[in-house]
């Protein structure tokens, strides 16, 4: 599987995701600077977490219009898998690769802790190694993770099974108390219509090695390799 991570000024999870991917692929994962305008042939493109452009104007707004994102969009349109984590999710919504927007957290606080998530969609290259309804624990670390979209968009996402992850309690119950940031319908991650683009606020790459205290994130990368290894 040929993978690359897009690096913006202010990205700070780019190396973590590189390590997680290389651990699963055994192949080097390329790092691509945002000023590049073309991409090599890839199976997976990752838009990493961080604070691209210092979150100026809106989180992800500047990065969404950087030169490389035109190429990312073109590849996504061809069906190449694109994964946006945290700030990467914000960038993908601002770039209109995914619908909706990540607003400031309900309680106006930066939240940095592990959360339980229910896996809702398993028919994707990202989530095939998880069971539907499985509860996994990933860290979140964000100020703007409050997913919002108009009612029609939310209905479409729900009807088409495009909610990939939802915030839940340890038993898998999707409750208001288990919603850390105010996201509509406890949405933590969504897919595009073609299901080759996933955006999510939680960080699978931060729990992909026992040294980090858990490996709940690892099946995502193993599954991607399984699905995309040429």
């Amino acid at each position: 599987m040929k993978a690359a991570v897009i690096v913006f000024p202010g990205s700070n999870c780019d190396r973590d995701i590189q390590v997680a991917i290389e651990q699963s692929t055994g192949q080097p994962c390329a790092m691509i600077w945002h000023k590049e305008t073309t991409l090599p042939r890839l199976d997976l493109i990752v838009v990493p977490g961080g604070f691209s452009y210092g979150d100026y104007l809106r989180s992800g707004a500047m990065a969404a219009h950087s030169p490389i994102m035109r190429a990312v969009k073109a590849e996504a349109d061809k069906g190449v898998a694109v994964l946006g984590i945290c700030n990467g999710f914000q960038v993908l919504t601002e770039a209109h690769l995914l619908p909706g927007v990540l607003m400031k957290n309900r309680d106006l606080r930066f939240i940095c802790r592990d959360v339980d998530l229910r896996v809702e969609a398993t028919d994707t290259v990202f989530t095939r190694r998880y069971r539907k309804g499985q509860v996994v624990r990933f860290p979140i670390a964000h100020n703007d993770g409050n997913y919002f979209a108009d009612p029609v968009t939310i209905k479409t996402l729900e009807d088409e099974g495009r909610v990939a992850f939802r915030y839940c309690d340890a038993n898998g119950n999707v409750t208001e108390a288990a919603n850390p940031n105010g996201s509509l319908n406890n949405i933590a991650g969504i897919l595009n219509a073609r299901r080759n683009v996933l955006g999510m606020m939680p960080h699978p790459e931060r729990l992909a090695d026992m040294l980090l205290g858990g490996i709940d994130g690892r099946p995502m990368f193993d599954g991607l390799v399984e699905a995309l290894a040429a």
Binding site: L57, A61, H65, E94, P99, G100, V101, F148, A149, D150
Partner: peptide, 9 residues
């Protein structure tokens, strides 16, 4: 439309 506002919200 393109940058200064996010017309979703």
């Amino acid at each position: 439309k393109q940058l200064l506002a996010n017309t979703v919200i």
